[in-house]
Write a protein that binds this DNA or RNA. Structure first.
Lengths: 124, 124
DNA sequence: TCGTGGTTACAAAAAGGTGCGTAATTTACT
DNA sequence: AGTAAATTACGCACCTTTTTGTAACCACGA
């Protein structure tokens, strides 16, 4: 199903974590078990289509475990796998790195100066 | 254009690192200074437009430094900033995590044989 | 004219949003 | 009591938006 025909593990992880949702979902899931609708409430701007797709992707990657309960109105729970939990600090480290970087790096469009990343074609 | 004004640093990093090129480019740049055409040779499937865009993004993020030399056929060199160098091990850690994960986590529902994504992972 | 590093305009492709359908049971209304 | 509506977690089809590719062009000096 997943044809992540690997060249490099880094490319594979990035394929999974790329986009705005994966890390966000992991973030919320690290708080504990969540249902589909919980996650939608956690981030109201994700569509149900995206949520399903992203959740599926994380499941395939072994980051998230899906548990379906019999009965109606049909209940499904999501939680991080052990591997998923091990991933959390690595993601946090990236966040920390970015905080440090944008703090110490005198680059346009990072700290307090401005936010508009305008490609004014050249400023040399 | 793209407002990086985000709530969470993790969202911001992922915005920079998402996609297949950023980590690849960082990977090649950690080998040392590279010119535009070097990077195109390193990954032949990137279009020159994408390469400029991604390079610009990494530059804005303070990960890559661009040096333009005066001269005949115009020469530009790219290299990692100190912050960029500090980022490398974090990315590597993700790669390592993935290797371990895909090795030890035979998640249910997926193909048993396919779970083993054999990657010889020879970098560094 | 070539080659470098880059930009722009347009086209193609991929990603994402919207809304409908579905299941089996409970509740709501008449 | 009987019918309709609501519930949950999606799948699917259609359509819009964003991203990426393609190609042509620019500047300069050998």
């Amino acid at each position: 199903m997943k044809s992540l025909v690997s060249r490099c593990p880094i490319e594979e992880v990035m394929q999974i974590l790329s986009g705005r949702w994966p890390t966000l979902l992991i973030y919320y899931l690290k708080q504990g078990t969540k249902r589909f609708s919980d996650l939608r409430r956690d981030n109201p701007t994700i569509s149900h289509k995206m949520l399903t797709l992203e959740l599926r992707k994380l499941e395939d990657a072994g980051i998230v475990e899906r548990t379906e309960f019999e009965g109606y109105p049909l209940r499904v729970e999501y939680q991080l796998t052990p591997a998923g939990h091990r991933l959390v600090p690595l993601i946090d480290a990236l966040g920390d790195w970015w905080e440090t970087t944008s703090d110490t790096s005198p680059h346009p469009g990072s700290t307090d100066a401005e936010a508009a990343v305008s490609n004014t074609a050249s400023r040399d």
